[in-house]
Design a protein around this nucleic acid. Structure first.
Lengths: 213, 213
DNA sequence: TAGATTGTTAATCGATTAACAATC
DNA sequence: TAGATTGTTAATCGATTAACAATC
């Protein structure tokens, strides 16, 4: 195909990474159904994107298809995996064993997520020591130890809003470099730590607004 | 202040609405602490935005401050409320009473969310008929009736991925105009229906990626 | 006043889409 | 070949930030 002037290593955006995870999900589904090849516009439709965007995203991870058959489903799945994943399954920790924390644990135990929860933490002594869904719940004083032992990069915060910043600070101090925050509060940004907020309250209010106009 | 040439009614973006919900949260906190006035840069810092953006957002909802005191906390809170909220508390429904659905119900029952869950639905007859956190669980066959009776605009999907599209279709057919989808699948877009995906799997994979680079 | 802040536009930045030669 | 698809850039679109007169 046409000329390739400069490799152009732009910084990749969270949106683009998000799309890659969605492509992969669609690819797994196609693979399960025995489909061998897929075109950019089919992948695009499955995640509500444009075909040009799919081609651009795949170009970025340097996966190529052919004008004849489009993309090989299994090969593309592997390409995305090589780009996104750690060589091994990545262990994460969760802080907060309330209703939400336990619900998230259940999602993991059903195997829908490509990561595994190595340990849970809670400040409530009533909750520590027990095992939920095969996951032991520790006290916050054991955080450093566990994060170190399991080489944890990612922490999930499922604590109340007023406890979120402290919990986040503890995780970052222990060495965690990425956070998923379910508490309805914005965490102080820390250089080198990637934070993603899942804010149910805000999202619902947003949806309610657009449902009305 | 300077001239005002055209009112310029751009279409408002989801991001902007999202920020308004966050400003409001910060304002409530300031009000609780007895703070009367706030400057754009303080509001900005509390939600990790820029002060110019705050001023722009507030300009958009036609709330004005003064160079002397910035913005009046209570008045701004009211302005945002007038812009975002229905006159009454808005009732929503939730479909899926698994672990996640029940966890979400609990969040509402603790009063953190400015909306109220009018009813829950599940296709499993084991779950219907019961009351969880003060919320009755109906069978899917009662969806139309309940949505009609309570004039429901918004539905929350907390069902497995393979049931999400059907549940969404049912909600839309019943008259719902906004959806919050927790299932790890992208729903087919429907004109006039606003859909927001809360995709834990995708988010976690994204965070894991950025935690590593 | 001097210094800080607001309302508002222009400039900038980044992401998406349109377009098209190369390819099968 | 003719028609469809890919890889790739240019054009477009939209959102954010910089800048500054007006104001207190």
């Amino acid at each position: 195909m046409p000329n390739t002037p400069v490799p152009s290593k732009h910084k990749i955006s969270p949106k683009q990474i998000g799309r890659l995870t969605l492509y992969r999900r669609a690819l797994r589904d196609l693979d399960r159904r025995g489909v061998m090849h897929v075109h950019s516009h089919e992948l695009a439709r499955s995640i509500n994107a444009s075909s040009a965007q799919v081609r651009r995203d795949l170009m970025y991870i340097e996966h190529t298809g052919t004008p004849a058959h489009g993309y090989d489903v299994q090969m593309l799945n592997n390409s995305i995996g090589r780009f996104l994943d750690m060589p091994q399954v990545e262990p994460v920790v969760i802080v907060g064993m309330g209703n939400l924390g336990r619900a998230i644990l259940t999602l993991f135990s059903t195997g829908q997520v490509g990561l595994t929860i190595a340990a849970a933490f809670d400040s409530d002594p009533q909750k520590t020591g027990r095992v939920h869904n095969g996951c032991r719940c520790y006290g916050m004083d054991q955080l450093n130890q566990v994060v170190d032992d399991h080489k944890i990069n990612v922490g999930i915060l499922a604590v109340p809003a007023d406890a979120a910043q402290d919990a986040a600070d503890s995780l970052v101090r222990a060495g965690v470099r990425g956070l998923v925050n379910f508490a309805p509060t914005r965490l102080r940004p820390v250089p080198g730590v990637y934070i993603e907020d899942i804010d149910l309250t805000s999202t619902l209010e947003k949806v309610a607004f657009f449902a009305r106009i």
